[in-house]
Nucleic acid binder design. Sequence first.
DNA 1: CTCATTATTGGAAATGGTTCCCATTATCAA
DNA 2: TTGATAATGGGAACCATTTCCAATAATGAG
Lengths: 159, 159
Amino acid sequence: MRGRNEGMGPWWHGRFRGCGYRITAGRDAILDVLTRANKHLSAEDIYLKVHSIYPAIGLTSVYRTLEILADMGLVLKFDFGDGRARYELAEGSKSSHHHHLVCTGCNRVIDYTDFIDEEVELLKRTEKGLSDKYNFRITNHLIQFYGLCDKCAKKKGGE
Amino acid sequence: MRGRNEGMGPWWHGRFRGCGYRITAGRDAILDVLTRANKHLSAEDIYLKVHSIYPAIGLTSVYRTLEILADMGLVLKFDFGDGRARYELAEGSKSSHHHHLVCTGCNRVIDYTDFIDEEVELLKRTEKGLSDKYNFRITNHLIQFYGLCDKCAKKKGGE
DNA sequence: CTCATTATTGGAAATGGTTCCCATTATCAA
DNA sequence: TTGATAATGGGAACCATTTCCAATAATGAG
Ligand SMILES: [Mn+2]
Ligand SMILES: [Mn+2]
Ligand SMILES: [Zn+2]
Ligand SMILES: [Zn+2]
């Protein structure tokens, strides 16, 4: 009845060691926060959350760790147009592959998975075609829709 | 045999006046550069090009004008991950709607229109669905593929 | 055309997210 | 346990973009 991870650390330890990275308290805490988070956090958001658990953390280390995680493909880095990068754990236990709906009025971001199957299917074909034609090794894609959320549309429409 | 624009200024003068904006030499020069450009220019790129034609221009005005143009939908603003915004004239005389292929190795960007019809058709359906479900007024979308161009793939593969 | 109104301008300074630097510390293989 | 060295944190540097404001120029009324 024991969990099958009895005795070993969290899932990401293996990935880290595999890439030659050391396991540190700071990195553990950052992954912890990312795993727990359901929103799209900025580096400072993450720094503050980690800081309350592990006060020795430095903002610089947060940036460094996020860069490593992004390189390893464990987190995704987004630009939603508010001047700071946003991070979220890539496809994992909780989250599944999704795209974003961004309100240009209030910067609210909605994760959507509707139509994701059709989209992914078309994307696969497109990727294949583009890879062949332009000799590109495609590793990732970004799809975002921009517009006004209900509240912002009302606000603008009412004036 | 005269051009049908005899006597009136360039095409964007109407758009500007319609929005209550004044026509200035700086704005004319910026639009000129944007119309002529075929690459994805940064604000500084534009500033330098305009400066050689109209030396009185200031970088601040370039930023201001680009913001106006983006708001009016005449130019599109992109983030290709190199730390500065890139601008291109929206669907116009020369350019047609297209998406981007971004090399994460050297930051090269390729405009592609392959599959654009299928993509746009799916996007339309997706937009409709998302608008209804999330009550969003969608005005725009962004699609980018990331990967390594042939040169960068070779460089990494060879090591 | 002349003039008054006021949007626009350029330059300098401020902003703020991110990166760099480096002396100190912590990890981990041997 | 210990040595090699990866990782750290904090302050300073970086740099694209904004802010500020006095000077200027575009526009419409007369
Ligand atoms: Mn998301
Ligand atoms: Mn383009
Ligand atoms: Zn909104
Ligand atoms: Zn490349």
